[in-house]
Design a binder for these strands. Structure first.
Length: 377
DNA sequence: TTGTTTTGTCATGGA
DNA sequence: AGTCCATGACAAAAC
């Protein structure tokens, strides 16, 4: 399947791609599809800021709102599951904070074996709802991991998840596990370590990092949902700086949550920038190709012009030669003898008078004239 | 299966 | 100092 274009956020993609690059040369039907999808966006939000300003965000974080936002879209089943858990008085922030505290004993409860069904919250439509127990009791919290699809394929990681089994725990795993590139064996259970790993640069996890790039977005989507923010990734990306900062300020988000939101925004912005950049590059290439074409045409024109001029010059030279000999054939010296054109030349003085003179004199006079001209310059 | 193109991401530098 | 944007480079996905 196409892992980039799962059903979850496709509609909002249209807003991003469809409007920004209507003339994109390599536009493909799927982009058009996205545009068609847009009116049915799960949130129905065309202007995220307007939604934001009109809302009490604390309220927006509530289970009911999440349910409202997702209930009309079958593809949001995972979120509905979370909503069920939320109805039971779950406070995401509190739990999140608990997770951030070293030595929190919430972890072990997550690994309880009483879950009979496991599901993976991630995403992309292919997500898994796998029945049968594959719980890994020996894993620590981190090892349970928030790996989305892509990492799941490395090692089949699943999330505990019936109504007894806390969906909020799963949520927190999402919130906590930012280590896109870690395979489960690399994960360490403490939240602090997650934070550290999150901060590591790509070269420290080079082996894994590019493996996961294609699915970072879907992870972002999962985590955005886990944050209970009723904005799609695209909305997070496209809202104004002020709105974004206000959102960060108004909600008591943990450092981890803020970091995730900023990353989602950064990646989204950069994606758009890359698309614009590529479009510009393509246009630049097209323009240069056009320039080359025009210059080649111009070159051909100049070539023709040049050959035309050469022909004219030759004709004029021939005419001149003919006239020259014509003149000499009619000239006579003092004794009435014909003048030899090999010994004499026709000379035009600067005053405009024309006369014939011996060649050797003409040469010396020409030298003098040249000197005069150089001095004048 | 292999080669090419497209896409998302990160790092980096400039504004 | 922090933020945003543009772009080269890279790797995975798509073709």
């Amino acid at each position: 399947m196409n892992s980039h274009h799962g059903s979850f956020f496709g509609p909002s993609d249209a807003m991003l791609l469809g409007t920004d690059y209507p003339t994109q040369l390599n536009s493909k039907p799927r982009h058009l599809q996205r545009q068609e999808f847009f009116p049915q966006s799960s949130s129905g939000i065309t202007n995220p800021e307007s939604l934001f300003h009109g809302s009490n965000l604390t309220g927006l974080f509530s289970a009911a709102d999440i349910r409202n936002l997702t209930a009309h879209d079958d593809s949001f089943d995972e979120i509905k599951l979370m909503s069920l858990a939320l109805e039971e008085g779950f406070s995401p922030i509190e739990v999140s904070q608990m997770f951030e505290e070293p030595g929190s004993d919430l972890g072990p409860s997550l690994n309880s074996n009483h879950c009979t069904t496991s599901y993976s919250i991630c995403c992309e439509g292919s997500v898994g709802y796998s029945s049968g127990v594959k719980s890994a009791p020996s894993h620590g919290l981190g090892a349970v991991g928030g790996h989305c699809q892509e990492n799941i394929k490395h090692s089949h990681v699943e999330y505990p998840g019936d109504t007894e089994c806390s969906a909020e725990a799963t949520l927190q795993q999402f919130l906590q596990n930012h280590t896109y590139n870690q395979v489960p064996s690399q994960t360490v259970s403490t939240p602090q370590h997650h934070q550290q790993m999150w901060m590591k640069k790509s070269n420290e996890v080079k082996d894994g990092y590019h493996n996961s790039t294609a699915t970072n977005r879907s992870r972002d989507e999962c985590r955005a949902k886990a944050l209970r923010i009723p904005f799609s990734v695209d909305e997070i990306v496209s809202m104004s700086v002020d709105s974004f900062n206000a959102m960060l300020a108004k909600n008591q988000l943990t450092e981890t949550q803020v970091s995730l939101l900023r990353d989602i925004r950064r990646r989204g912005k950069n994606k758009v920038a890359a698309q614009k950049c590529r479009k510009r590059k393509l246009n630049a290439i097209l323009n240069l190709e056009e320039d080359v074409c025009n210059l080649q045409t111009q070159k051909e024109t100049l070539k023709k012009e040049h050959s035309q001029c050469s022909k004219s010059i030759n004709q004029i030279k021939q005419k001149l030669n003919y006239l020259y000999h014509e003149i000499f054939s009619k000239l006579r010296d003092d004794q009435g003898r014909p003048v030899n054109p090999c010994q004499y030349v026709i000379h035009c003085s600067s005053s405009g008078s024309v006369f014939i003179m011996p060649k050797h004199l003409a040469k010396s006079e020409q030298k003098q004239d040249n000197r005069k001209e150089q001095k004048q310059k």
